[in-house]
């Protein structure tokens, strides 16, 4: 198996805003990210960090170029295949946690497993294990509103790793957290990398960048030297 978790070759992404302006989010990006590494993507707001994560996660399709993630050529797959790819290969962590407010912590963690046709008892068992990994075994039945920001992000981390993906994409994972909570979250991510995951993290938080093995700097959709 190749050691490259993500390989991008001349990837360009445009999208249209709601006011129908075309934005070039990524411009001829070429990069390679190895397995079991923590790579941070840094850059100012609007530089294309989130777009890069979304392309790697199969949420955005490049208009040109090639992208292979965990042996899957995403530039040739359809929407359905990309959804299945996300489910089985990628764990997403968002700045705003994106938990379902009406679901309990374990149910939020079990949500991707539901899409993966895993039976309920197995879902619950695995969700409880994932929550234990992030230290929330005593918060299984709490709803997001009953948890702190740090705890919510840990639930989101547990959800991201519930199906044991090889790549975790984290978009500003500490953006909404205080320093203590951010440290806990970064410790968990470090632990995931140690257990074999590849973490790609869009951030401008120096604390996050310091944890990583490498940094990719983006500016207006182009990779720039540090």
């Amino acid at each position: 198996m190749s050691a490259t978790a993500v390989a991008m070759n001349n990837v360009t992404v445009h999208y249209h805003t709601t006011s129908n302006h075309e934005v070039t989010a990524l411009n001829n990006i070429t990069l390679a990210i190895d397995y079991q590494k923590w790579v941070s993507i840094a850059g100012p707001s609007g530089s294309g960090k989130s777009s890069l994560l979304h392309v790697i996660g199969g949420l955005l399709t490049p208009q040109s170029g090639e992208i292979i993630v965990d042996q899957t050529p995403l530039h040739t797959t359809n929407q359905q295949m990309r959804a299945t790819f996300r489910l089985t290969h990628i764990g997403f962590v968002f700045q705003s946690f994106y938990l379902m407010p009406h679901l309990r912590a374990w149910e939020n963690v079990a949500l991707p497993m539901l899409a993966a046709h895993i039976p309920l008892p197995e879902r619950k068992k695995r969700a409880i294990e994932a929550l234990a990994r992030v230290g929330l075994q005593d918060r299984l039945y709490h709803r997001p509103a009953e948890l702190s920001g740090g705890e919510q992000q840990r639930v989101a981390l547990a959800r991201a790793v519930a199906l044991a993906p090889r790549i975790i994409l984290a978009d500003e994972p500490t953006g909404n957290l205080d320093a203590d909570s951010a440290t806990v979250v970064l410790d968990i991510l470090t632990q995931f990398v140690a257990q074999g995951a590849t973490v790609i993290c869009a951030t401008h938080d120096p604390l996050v960048i310091a944890r990583g093995d490498a940094v990719i700097h983006l500016h207006r959709g182009v990779i720039v030297p540090e």
Partner: peptide, 16 residues
């Protein structure tokens, strides 16, 4: 929309 967007992001298919 947001709820559906999250579900799609974490791997639910449009069909489901």
């Amino acid at each position: 929309r947001k709820e559906i967007g999250i579900m799609l992001a974490i791997g639910f298919t449009n069909r489901s």
